[in-house]
C-alpha cells in the first residue's frame, strides 16, 4: 500500500499544468494544444449501438476535463469531424465486427495497425454481446450474418466490459492510460496494476455468458453468494436462490458484466485495498 499511496500523492501534484502562455489570446480560432503532453485517442465505431459513446459522454464535465487536460481526440465518428482512422496512442473500439462487411474488417485491422493500445469498449467489442445472436436473413443485407468480437480479429490490449459500460470505468481507464503513457515510472506502475485485470480479461477470451459464473466461479468452489453478479446484470437474468446465482439463460444477452463484476473472477488486493486513495486521485485529476 505504501507504494500505491505515495504514487497517488505524487500523481495529484504531477497532474499536468497548463503552460502559462495558454492564457494569452490566440490568433486563430482553431484549437491550439493547451497541454503539450496529451495522449492521442481515436474511437472506432463498428457494429455497436452508440450506447458506449453515450456512456463515455455521460461523464459530463468529467469528459470535458479529460479532453481539456489529458486527451486529444483525433478521430471519433459521432463527436469529431475526422473521416478516417488516424495514428493514435489509444483506440477505443465500440461494437463487434461483421465479417461479411469488407469495410468493417478493414477498419478493425487499420485500428490495430495505427494504435499503440487498443481498448475493446463494451460488451459487443469484448464478447459479441447481442450480436452473438445474429444469423443474417434481414433486408437489405441478408448476407450480413456473422459477427465476431474484435479480439477474434486483432490483438486487444484492454477490455471495458458491460452493456452499457459504466461511464466511471471508461473514465478510470482513460486516466490510467494517460498515466501509463505519460506518467512517472511510479505512475506507470500504478496504471499497470490498475489495468492489469482488464488486460488479463482481454487475454482470457472473447466469449461471455451467465455460464461463466457456473464454470469459472461456482464449479470452481469460489462463489460465496455476495450478489454482485445479480446487481451487475443489465437484464435481470440473475437471481439468488439460497444465496447462489440462478441464471435465466434465455434472458442473458452474453455481455460478460456478471463474471467481470464478480469479486471471485479476479480480485487484486493491492489495487482494491487502495480504493480510497485511487478514487480520490481520479476525482482530483478530473477537477
Amino acid at each position: 500500500m505504501g507504494l500505491l499511496d505515495s504514487v497517488f500523492k505524487k500523481n495529484i501534484s504531477a497532474a499536468p499544468q497548463k503552460p502559462a502562455d495558454v492564457a494569452k489570446p490566440v490568433e486563430t480560432k482553431k484549437e491550439v494544444k493547451p497541454v503539450a503532453d496529451k495522449i492521442t485517442v481515436g474511437y472506432t465505431h463498428l457494429s455497436g449501438c452508440t450506447g458506449c459513446t453515450v456512456a463515455l459522454a455521460d461523464n459530463y464535465a468529467g469528459l470535458l476535463t479529460l479532453l481539456d487536460k489529458y486527451v486529444d481526440l483525433k478521430y471519433m465518428p459521432t463527436l469529431a469531424d475526422a473521416r478516417h482512422i488516424q495514428k493514435v496512442d489509444v483506440s477505443f473500439v465500440e461494437g463487434s465486427v461483421c465479417i461479411n462487411d469488407k469495410l468493417a474488417v478493414e477498419e478493425i485491422k487499420e485500428t490495430r495497425e495505427k494504435s499503440a493500445v487498443v481498448v475493446a469498449l463494451g460488451g459487443c467489442a469484448c464478447y459479441g454481446n447481442i450480436t452473438r445472436f445474429c444469423r443474417g436473413g434481414q433486408q437489405n443485407q441478408p448476407a450480413q450474418e456473422a459477427y465476431l468480437p474484435i479480439g477474434d480479429l486483432i490483438k486487444v490490449d484492454v477490455y471495458i466490459p458491460g452493456c452499457a459500460p459504466s461511464p466511471q470505468l471508461i473514465r478510470n481507464v482513460a486516466v490510467a492510460a494517460y498515466l501509463l503513457l505519460k506518467g512517472s515510472p511510479e505512475q506507470k506502475a500504478l496504471a499497470t496494476a490498475y489495468l492489469k485485470p482488464l488486460m488479463m480479461a482481454a487475454d482470457k477470451g472473447t466469449s461471455a455468458c451467465f455460464c461463466d459464473l457456473m464454470t469459472n466461479v461456482i464449479n470452481q468452489g469460489l462463489c460465496m453468494g455476495c450478489g454482485s453478479c445479480a446487481a451487475a446484470c443489465p437484464v435481470r437474468a440473475i437471481t439468488h436462490e439460497y444465496g447462489k446465482p440462478q441464471g435465466e439463460r434465455d434472458l442473458c444477452i452474453k455481455c460478460g458484466a456478471c463474471y467481470n463484476q464478480c469479486p471471485r473472477s479476479w480480485f487484486s488486493f493491492d489495487v482494491v485495498s487502495a480504493y480510497e486513495s485511487i478514487n480520490e486521485t481520479i476525482m482530483a485529476a478530473l477537477q
Binding site: 458491460g162 446487481a231 455481455c255 460478460g256 467481470n260 469479486p263 485495498s273
Partner: peptide, 25 residues
C-alpha cells in the same frame, strides 16, 4: 452492511464498475 467478501465486492465495484453505472459514488 455485509461480510468481508461483500465489502470486497463493493470496493471492486467502486474501482471497476462493470455493470454498476453511477453506483460507486
Amino acid at each position: 452492511v455485509g461480510t468481508p467478501c461483500q465489502m470486497q465486492a463493493i470496493r471492486k465495484l467502486q474501482l471497476y464498475p462493470v455493470g454498476a453505472r453511477d453506483v460507486g459514488a
